[in-house]
Amino acid sequence: MNAARSIETRKADRLARRQRYLESLKYAFHVITHPFDGFWDLVHEHRGTVAAAHTFLILFLLTRVIKLMCTSFQFITAPVQYINVFEEMGSLLLPFLILCVANWAMTTLFDGKGRFRDIYMAMCYALVPYTLIQLPMTLISNGLSYEEGSLYSVMLSISLIWCVFLVFVGLMQVHDYSPGKTFIFLIVTVVGAAVIIFLMLTFFSLLSDAASYFISLYRETFFRLN
């Protein structure tokens, strides 16, 4: 009896969770059109989900790759023969995550209200216009001629400006900062990211030095023993 009920509740749970996920996906349209209101509710009213954020991030990466592969040859100069899809995705994903971490690290020190989860979610939701504009534009570019390229480039710039604006507003609302403070912390975030990259490089080079030391020590020992 109890077991049956628990199955029932689990089913209901799953259904509710799916409902919530779909709701949070749909909520992105509200966020990108009403950013001030949208980002506040996204975090503080729990209207967004991390799962949806993951989805948007993955869509963003896919858009980037599809753009490189399928845009009409007239508008893109990417050397197709040299592109590595995973490298391309990694080169976007890694800076994105580092920037999230750097922002979190800096803002927690200066009374930012956002948790890492919130920052990540806001940043991912801010990427939605990129997917929303560039994916159709990739398709449309195949119907445009070289002279009509200005339409294409204008749409691309619009998507980028929109994204930057959303990142700005998103971080402002998540941390409950003033615009000036948000701007300063955007710069600080970039500096923080640079520091993180520097530390990572140092760490890895030290690690490889240490590893090679032990390897040579091992080799030397066995060489002597034999």
Partner: peptide, 10 residues
């Protein structure tokens, strides 16, 4: 040749 391609494509 993007320009001429555009011309042909049009």
């Amino acid at each position: 040749d993007r320009e001429n391609y555009g011309r042909a494509f049009k």
